[in-house]
Design a protein around this nucleic acid. Structure first.
Length: 735
RNA sequence: GGGCUCGUAGCUCAGUUGGUCCAGAGCGCCUCGUUUACACCGAGGAGGCCAGAGGUUCAAAUCCUCUCGAGCCCACCA
C-alpha cells in the first residue's frame, strides 16, 4: 500500500465496478418495503454546482444506508429541461453567433436546444458518477421524453376536464425580454430608488362656481401608467373624500372622464389616501377594477413600449414615456410635487429584466382545491417536512396562494396539449369555443370531425412537469411498466412498487417552486402523497457565509475540488458539522481537512493490513474479551469495543433522524481520536494479540463510514483478508 | 407589514427531549517530537461570563419574555 491515499487511482475504478455489478439496481422483493428517493433532476443546461453536490452527498448517504439495511433501495436519476432558463442560456449561445431564436424558427431552435441539452445531460451524468452517486442509471429519465410528456398531458387533460385548468384574460407578469408570461414565483423583487410623483387630477365641474379648479391628488411611482387609469379610489371611511365619492375627474393628458370610487383596500394613511387605478397594469388595481367593473385600458405592450391606447405616447419605450409624461404633466400644471422614494420592482428570475404586469390571455390552474389537499396532507401528518419550521412557511404560502399561470410564450418545453378547431360555425364547436385537449396529437376535432386544427403555440411552465416528477419518472400512468422479470411476473410496475416514495430531499429554496407543487399535483393525479418525508438542506455559501457567485469569484466547483481532494473528501465536507435546513459554509480548507481524514483512514488500514496475520485469528466479539480482565490491555480492548458500540448506536440514530452532520462528526471523532490515537497507539506493544480487535473495529468502521465516503471505504474493504461480501456497498449495516 | 434563522474559542460551525462528552470540532496559533500506519502526522498548550437583560427550574448554551446586532423568505409599500 502507498504511503498516501490516491483517490485518482480508486474512484473511477470502483464506480465502474458497482455499476457493472448492478448494485445500484434495487432487487424487487414483494416482502420488503422499498426505500425510494427521486433525485431532484438537475437542469440540463450547464455544469453541476456545489448545490448539486450537497444533495448527492445527503441522498447518497440515505440510499447507501438503507441499501445496507437490506431494503430494496431505488435512487432514480433524471434531468430537467428547465424551460425558460435553458431557453435563455441557449439564446445567449446564439447571441455569440449574432443570431436570435427567430432566425432559426421554432422547429430548428427546438432541435438545436435539444442537442445542446443532451450534450449537457451526458456531461452531468459523468459528474454525478464522479461524485459517487449510487443511482440506478437504467431508470434514468428526462422530462421531455415522450412517455413523460404524455403523462404530463394526461394530468393536464384531467385538470381541464374537471374545470381546474382554465383559459382567461387576466393580469399576469410579463417579461419583455423573454417575451413570455411568468408565474408569481418567477418574479423576484428588487429594491429600487426612484421617485414618487404626486399628480393632481382635476375634479369635473369644480370650476363652475369658484375661480380655482379643485383637484384630487394621487401618488404614483409609475406615472406613464396614468394614461391607462380608469378610476381614482379612496377608502370609504375617509372623511376627506366623503363627498367626492361618486363624482369624477378629468384625467390629464387624455381628457377622459373617470370615476372616483371607494374601496377598502385603499390605505387612508398612505400618501394622500387617494390612489389612481390602472386595472391594465397593476394586480391590485386589476382586482379593484373587477370589483367595480372598471374599463381596462392597456397602455403598455408586450414589447415594453406604449400602445396606441397611449395616444401621442404610442410606440415609445416605457422609460422614455415616463419622462415625457412627467414633462407633459408638469407643463400643464398637473404635477404637484416629486419626492425620492424607494420601492420594489419585479424582475424576471431568469434574465433580470423588469417585469410588467399586463393583461394577457393565458392558461391557469385553479389552485385552491389542490392547495387545500396539500395543506391537509401535511397537517394530518401524511407528509412530514423537516426541519419542522418549514411546515409553517409551507402553510403560509398555500393559504395565500393565487391561481397558477402555466402557459409560457417560449419554444423550449412541452407544448400545450390544447387544440383549436377552425370550424367555429359548427354548433357543437360554438359551445366549446372550438377548444379541446388531447393527450395524443388528434387527427380531427372530436366535436365536428373537422381536420382543420391548430395547436396552441404556448408551452407549459417547466414546473408543471417537474411538479409531477415523482410519479411520471416511475412510469405513471402506464401501469404495466415493470423493470425486472420478477416484477413482471408479479404484475407489479415500478410505480406500484416504489410509489409513494420515501424521502424528497432538496434545498429549501425550492419549497414552493417544486415541493409544494409536487404535493398538490401528486395528490391530485395519484391520490397519494408523492413522498412521506421532505428533508430540506441548506444552501451552500462560501467560508464566510457569503453567497457564492461568479462575480464575487468565490465559487467552489465541486468537480474541481473532487479532482484535487477526492470525491469522498468533498462529500464529507458538505455534511460534516452541518445541521438540517441551515446554510452550509464551505471553504477549501474544510475540504482539505476531510481529505486528511481519508488519508488517516488509509493509513489505519495500512497499519492493520500490513500487520502479520495473528498467530490464531479468534472470533472477536464483546463476549470474547474477558469481561473482568484486570490487565491494562484487557481494559483497552473493552474500552475500544465499547466505544465502537456507542458510535454505531449514535450514528444509526443520527442517520435515522437526518442528523448527518452529527453522524459524520461522531465517526470522525471515533476513528481518528479514539481508535487511531488511543487504541492503535496502545496496541503497538502487542500487535499480535490486538490484531483481531483491530480488524473488527476497522471492518465495522468502514461499513459505518461507507455511506459518507463510498470510494475509500470500498478500496479498503477490498483489501480486507476476510471481507464478508464482494462489495462494501452490499455489506450489511453494523448493528 | 407578516414570518424564519443566526449571534458559542482568532475564523467557520456542531451541541438530539434542560442534568454523567457541556463548554466541543475543524482550520489557524504556540511548544516539543522525523519511535518502521500516517508531517495530509503525533504529544502537549494558549484561547469562550455560550450577544445582552430578566424569568421558569434543584439544575439552562439548551425553555419563556424583552433588547441589541447579522442574514433570509413572503406580502396587493400606490
Amino acid at each position: 500500500m502507498e504511503k498516501v491515499y490516491d483517490h485518482r487511482k480508486t474512484e473511477k475504478k470502483w464506480y465502474q465496478f458497482w455499476e457493472k455489478s448492478e448494485f445500484f439496481r434495487p432487487r424487487f422483493n414483494p416482502k420488503k418495503s422499498p426505500y425510494t428517493i427521486i433525485m431532484p433532476p438537475p437542469n440540463a443546461n450547464g455544469e453541476l454546482h456545489v448545490g448539486h453536490a450537497t444533495f448527492i452527498a445527503v441522498e447518497d448517504i440515505l440510499i447507501r444506508y438503507h441499501r445496507m439495511r437490506g431494503q430494496p433501495s431505488l435512487w432514480l436519476p433524471g434531468a430537467d429541461h428547465a424551460g425558460i432558463l435553458t431557453q435563455v442560456v441557449y439564446e445567449r449561445e446564439l447571441e455569440k453567433q449574432g443570431k436570435t431564436r427567430f432566425d432559426l424558427g421554432r422547429e430548428e431552435f427546438y432541435r438545436q436546444t435539444y442537442q445542446f441539452t443532451m450534450k449537457n445531460k451526458k456531461h452531468m451524468e459523468a459528474q454525478l458518477k464522479a461524485l459517487g452517486a449510487s443511482c440506478d442509471w437504467t431508470r434514468e429519465r428526462f422530462t421531455l421524453e415522450p412517455e413523460i410528456t404524455k403523462a404530463v398531458y394526461t394530468t393536464f387533460k384531467d385538470l381541464y376536464e374537471e374545470g381546474l385548468i382554465y383559459r382567461g384574460e387576466r393580469i399576469i407578469n410579463w417579461c419583455t425580454r423573454c417575451g413570455t408570461a411568468l408565474s408569481d414565483l418567477e418574479v423576484e423583487h428588487e429594491e429600487k430608488k426612484g421617485k414618487l410623483w404626486h399628480l393632481k387630477y382635476p375634479i369635473k365641474n369644480s370650476k363652475r362656481k369658484a375661480q380655482s379648479v379643485k383637484f384630487i391628488t394621487v401618488a404614483t411611482t409609475r406615472p406613464e401608467t396614468m394614461l391607462g387609469d380608469t378610476a381614482v379610489a379612496v377608502n370609504p371611511s375617509d372623511k376627506r373624500y366623503e363627498n367626492l365619492i361618486g363624482q369624477s375627474v378629468i384625467l390629464p393628458l387624455t381628457k377622459r372622464e373617470i370615476p372616483i370610487i371607494a374601496d377598502p383596500v385603499v390605505d387612508p394613511d398612505f400618501g394622500t389616501g387617494a390612489v389612481k387605478v390602472t386595472p391594465g397594469h397593476d394586480p391590485v388595481d386589476f382586482e379593484i377594477g373587477q370589483k367595480h367593473q372598471l374599463e381596462i385600458i392597456s397602455v403598455i405592450g408586450q414589447a415594453g413600449q406604449m400602445t396606441k391606447e397611449a395616444g401621442r405616447f404610442a410606440q415609445i419605450k416605457i422609460a422614455e414615456a415616463r419622462e415625457k409624461v412627467i414633462k407633459a404633466l408638469e407643463k400643464e400644471g398637473f404635477l404637484e410635487r416629486t419626492e425620492d422614494y424607494t420601492y420594489s420592482v419585479g424582475v424576471c428570475e431568469r434574465c433580470r429584466e423588469v417585469v410588467e404586469p399586463l393583461i394577457s390571455k393565458q392558461w391557469f390552474i385553479k389552485i385552491q382545491p389542490l392547495a387545500e389537499k396539500a395543506l391537509q396532507a401535511v397537517k394530518k401528518g401524511d407528509i412530514k417536512i423537516l426541519p419542522k419550521r418549514f411546515e409553517k412557511i409551507y402553510f403560509n404560502w398555500l393559504e395565500n396562494i393565487r391561481d397558477w399561470c402555466i402557459s409560457r410564450q417560449i419554444w423550449w418545453g412541452q407544448r400545450l396539449p390544447v387544440y383549436y378547431c377552425q370550424e367555429l360555425n359548427n354548433s357543437e364547436c360554438k359551445v366549446k369555443n372550438g377548444i379541446f385537449v388531447s393527450v395524443d396529437p388528434p387527427n380531427e376535432c372530436p366535436h365536428c370531425n373537422s381536420a382543420k386544427l391548430e395547436q396552441d403555440p404556448d408551452t407549459l411552465d417547466t414546473w408543471f412537469s417537474s411538479g409531477q416528477w415523482p410519479y411520471t419518472a416511475l412510469g405513471w400512468p402506464k401501469k404495466q411498466q415493470a423493470d425486472s422479470r420478477k416484477q413482471r411476473a408479479a404484475k407489479i410496475s415500478d410505480f406500484d412498487y416504489f410509489y409513494p416514495t420515501s424521502v424528497m430531499e432538496t434545498g429549501y429554496d425550492i419549497l414552493f417552486f417544486w415541493v409544494a407543487r409536487m404535493v398538490m399535483l401528486g395528490l391530485y393525479a395519484t391520490g397519494k402523497p408523492p413522498f412521506h418525508t421532505v428533508f430540506l438542506h441548506g444552501l451552500v455559501r462560501d467560508e464566510n457565509g457569503k453567497k457564492m457567485s461568479k462575480s464575487r469569484g468565490n465559487v467552489i466547483d465541486p468537480l474541481t475540488v473532487a479532482e484535487k481532494y477526492g470525491a469522498d473528501a468533498v462529500r464529507l465536507a458538505l455534511v460534516f458539522g452541518t445541521s438540517p435546513g441551515n446554510d452550509i459554509n464551505l471553504g477549501e480548507s474544510k475540504i482539505k481537512g476531510m481529505r486528511n481524514f481519508t488519508n488517516k483512514l488509509w493509513n489505519i488500514g495500512r497499519f492493520i493490513l500490513s500487520n502479520k496475520p495473528p498467530v490464531q485469528r479468534s472470533r472477536i466479539c464483546k463476549a470474547c474479551v474477558p469481561a473482568n480482565g484486570k490487565s491494562q490491555d484487557e481494559k483497552e480492548d473493552r474500552w475500544v469495543l465499547g466505544e465502537l458500540e456507542k458510535t454505531k448506536e449514535k450514528v444509526t440514530k443520527d442517520i435515522e433522524n437526518y442528523r448527518f452532520g452529527q453522524a459524520a462528526e461522531e465517526l470522525y471523532d471515533f476513528i481518528w481520536h479514539k481508535f487511531a490515537d488511543k487504541y492503535i497507539e496502545h496496541s503497538k506493544g502487542r500487535r499480535e494479540e490486538s490484531q483481531p480487535i483491530l480488524e473488527k473495529v476497522f471492518e465495522e468502521s468502514l461499513r459505518l463510514l461507507h455511506p459518507f465516503m463510498p470510494f475509500i471505504t470500498e478500496e479498503l474493504w477490498q483489501k480486507l483478508p476476510n471481507k464478508t461480501s464482494e462489495s462494501i456497498m452490499v455489506a450489511s449495516w453494523p448493528d
